[in-house]
Design a protein around this nucleic acid. Structure first.
Lengths: 260, 260
DNA sequence: AATTTTGATTTGTGATCACAATAATGGTTT
DNA sequence: AAACCATTATTGTGATCACAAATCAAAATT
């Protein structure tokens, strides 16, 4: 099971484990290991650490749309008290990654045809602009990093590794946009990713079940080529196509009206 | 003083007042009276009430860019404990309305030429789309409501009432976009407003000091006309111009490079 | 067997206390 | 008078408890 949701018995086991490390700063064991102790992993507050862990988990599709998320459940998994979780979930809810239901319970939002359309439109506007700005600012080092991320991305496809397939796709775009020097817009873009990631994971899983995850053509390579040639109009079209292709697959899978 | 910031002695007075009503649900006295007891004012939780009050105050420009905001300060003003304030400020921070400084203090963000550009671009994309969608869905009742808001807006200009001048401008656009049926995008738009409102208020105040607040031509009337004629291309241009005009004034006032 | 009711559990929210880190203050020294 | 230091006050964060509302489960009723 990849869902960020543990059975009751398993949750109890983790609680026992967590109790022993209760005094430690924070011990986060969410089932995957990206414990590269970079400077970015230095968190001043627990809530920041919890937020980053949960954000990562969401972008990897570990949260199933419609599932409910509880403060104590997350707190037990992460071995911390309620407070850091409370503040993280409040933030994630404000960003649209989670949802407060009428019964004041917290849940992973479900997708609708209308919401998908809105997210698609906004992503197209913001991401094509961010890409264009990044193109004129990126250096050789950045292009090499993008190439490496894309290699790992293709590796994930070859291994039918859905989780990393989704995550590394985001990672490619995030790295690209990081060169845009657009602080406000990149935050908004990542907020949109948080909204669609659980849905994307669901679609990809269904796709993987009934066939194979495959990329018709390596869009990322074409993007890198356009950047290398400094062809901004082509780059914008490629970004728009990249987003549109993904949305079309999702719409077809759900039987929703297909864009354009 | 219109700033959402009280002197120490005044804050003490309020604390005394608040103590007497400590047991009451919540008593919010932020200096202005919009106590229309509509259903929208029925809040299930205190943090929701606090959030709505603070959001309103921000959109009215009661927060000065650069000023720091403290949990206990707000809690005393609103006569509630720290918890509802903590959660509200966390949410507002996530939405970009407030900022966590490196010294883990909370402050009203200051504007920069770059941030203004980003916000301007995003507003143009999202608001013109929302307006276009609203045009095909609005009814006679909606047009009447917009006309009334615009009348109050012009009244505020005539009275040199900067606070309501800013707020009613937002109110006009919010009412218009409410007919777009775009849930995700309208939330993002209001998030952008929260980011610029304190800055807009600062600019408008300077404008009011050295001259008069005046509208060169009533853009809102033209917008209503375009909607009445169902001319979507003209409507989109009018929205874009409306946003651009405001940004240009701000850029000129700050001596920043002017858009387009 | 289907529905209702009752009781126990789980949930988010609010309140309060403790604490480390930062800021502010006042006094001392150079 | 200006720079330095020590003390005090304030700040956000974390932990814990209490509680009402919602949920679930099982028993009682029809």
């Amino acid at each position: 099971m990849h869902w960020f949701d543990l059975s009751h018995t398993l949750r109890y086991k983790i609680r026992q484990l967590a109790k022993s490390k209760r005094e430690a700063y924070i011990n986060l064991h969410l089932g995957y290991e990206n414990k590269n102790n970079k400077a970015s992993n230095m968190h001043k507050t627990q809530q920041e650490a919890v937020y980053n862990e949960l954000k990562d988990a969401i972008l990897r599709g570990k949260f199933e749309p419609g599932n409910s998320v509880t403060l104590r459940g997350i707190a037990e998994m992460l071995g911390c008290s309620l407070m850091p979780v409370r503040e993280s979930l409040r933030r994630l809810t404000a960003e649209g990654a989670l949802e407060l239901l009428a019964n004041r319970r917290i849940a992973v939002p479900t997708m609708s045809a209308e919401k998908l359309q809105e997210i698609y439109y906004t992503r197209t506007c913001l991401e094509s602009y961010a890409a264009e700005r990044a193109m004129s600012r990126i250096d050789e080092q950045g292009l090499r990093e993008l190439t490496e991320i894309n290699r790992l991305h293709n590796e994930a496809i070859a291994n039918q590794d859905v989780e990393n397939y989704i995550y590394l796709n985001f990672e490619f775009h995030r790295k690209l946009y990081s060169y845009s020097d657009l602080n406000v817009i990149t935050v908004m873009i990542e907020g949109l990713w948080l909204r669609i990631a659980p849905f994307m994971r669901m679609i990809s899983d269904r796709f993987a079940e009934q066939g194979e995850i495959t990329e018709s053509d390596d869009k990322h390579i074409e993007i890198l080529e356009a950047i290398h040639k400094q062809n901004s109009t082509r780059l914008k079209h490629l970004i728009q196509d990249d987003i549109l292709d993904g949305v079309r697959i999702q719409q077809e899978m759900m039987g929703w009206p297909v864009s354009d």
